[in-house]
């Protein structure tokens, strides 16, 4: 351990974890309501970022259709993402009801491939550096902290705002599930489809709604990530870091997704603070080693329900 780096990395890790948590939340939402594990969520994130970039009129060759301010571009992207989410649910996942797990996993993987191709043909394959981010990466707060490197912690403004927005969004969605009637019907559906239907909940409508909300969450996550790293096709790989977070927190728990996301962010950052170069290089697989440990010790995750099988 390189102790001088630890305070800095703790802060960075938690802030990065906020975005991971938001993305994990979208996957958990769909899993909870329809028991579909959405491998295409990363591509929905990527689509959201590209759509915002496109609506904001920052195309590279100057022949833009739209030239909206960032807030309006985000709203337009969210509306488009909702439509995409509803279409996915209606056209791709509804015919799969009752199919085995492998078919459903492969359906979302096929969707991911399709969206990858669609994004690269619509928006081009090279990364875009000109995302209209509200802050430049150079804007930093310097927090004095004795014991850290140079006795200061450097806090990027983008990272801090991203974290606040991500946590705010997560809290709003959790309150929506706990307090509103629609949220109640979604929780009921996630418990038992047949019982939910028998008390008058329209289950297909709930599925559609959860895909629409997942589209909103994915777009928000995409915009937040794009302010950090710029827009590119690689944004979709963030979901591969979110998977360990989801399993760590428990597949069907919203607080679990958030805690898992923060823990994964923290793990990656602390690995960075190690003094051994071999350990530092393992940033990309550290979440997966964590995942293997969780799978062996506590497969249901920190907050998940233990599943009891009946014959």
């Amino acid at each position: 351990m390189n102790w001088q780096l630890v305070p800095q990395q703790l802060i960075t890790g938690i802030l990065n974890g906020g975005t991971i948590a938001l993305i994990a939340l979208g996957v958990v939402l769909i899993f909870k309501s329809s028991e579909v594990f959405n491998f295409a969520h990363g591509h929905m994130v990527m689509m959201g970022a590209f759509l915002t970039w496109w609506f904001a009129g920052a195309t590279e060759n100057g022949n833009e259709l739209f030239n909206l301010p960032l807030w309006a571009a985000v709203i337009m992207a969210v509306i488009t993402a909702v439509i995409i989410g509803l279409l996915i649910e209606r056209l791709a996942l509804r015919p799969m009801a009752g199919q085995p797990l492998l078919s459903i996993i492969l359906m979302t993987l096929g969707l991911a491939q399709l969206m990858e191709g669609a994004a690269s043909i619509a928006f081009g394959i090279d990364p875009k550096g000109n995302f209209p981010a509200p802050f430049s990466p150079g804007d930093v707060f310097m927090l004095p902290f004795p014991g850290a490197f140079n006795d200061t912690i450097i806090l990027k403004k983008t990272l801090a705002v991203t974290f606040v927005v991500a946590m705010l969004a997560a809290v709003i969605f959790i309150l929506f599930f706990q307090l509103t009637k629609t949220g109640l019907s979604m929780r009921a559906t996630s418990e038992n489809h047949e019982l939910a239907r028998s008390v008058g909940i329209r289950v297909p409508r709930v599925f559609g709604l959860s895909w629409a909300i997942a589209g909103i969450i994915a777009t928000l996550g995409g915009v937040l990530l794009a302010t950090l790293t710029g827009v590119s096709l690689n944004l979709s790989t963030v979901v591969l870091i979110a998977f360990p977070a989801i399993l760590l927190g428990g597949l069907d728990s919203f607080p679990g997704a958030i805690v898992g996301g923060l823990l994964v962010g923290l793990t990656q950052a602390l690995v960075q603070a190690s003094s051994l170069i071999a350990v530092r290089n393992s940033t990309e697989i550290a979440p997966y080693i964590l995942l293997l440990i969780v799978l062996v010790l506590r497969p249901e995750g920190l907050f998940g329900q233990k599943r009891i099988e009946r014959i």
């Binding site: 799969m96 078919s103 993987l109 096929g110 399709l114 990858e116 191709g117 669609a118």
Partner: peptide, 19 residues
């Protein structure tokens, strides 16, 4: 962009249609 996007589109579409 055309050259790289056709493969994933073809594969994804065929896989989904089969499923």
């Amino acid at each position: 962009r055309v050259l790289t996007s056709f493969r994933p589109i073809f594969f994804g579409a065929i896989l989904m249609l089969f499923l």
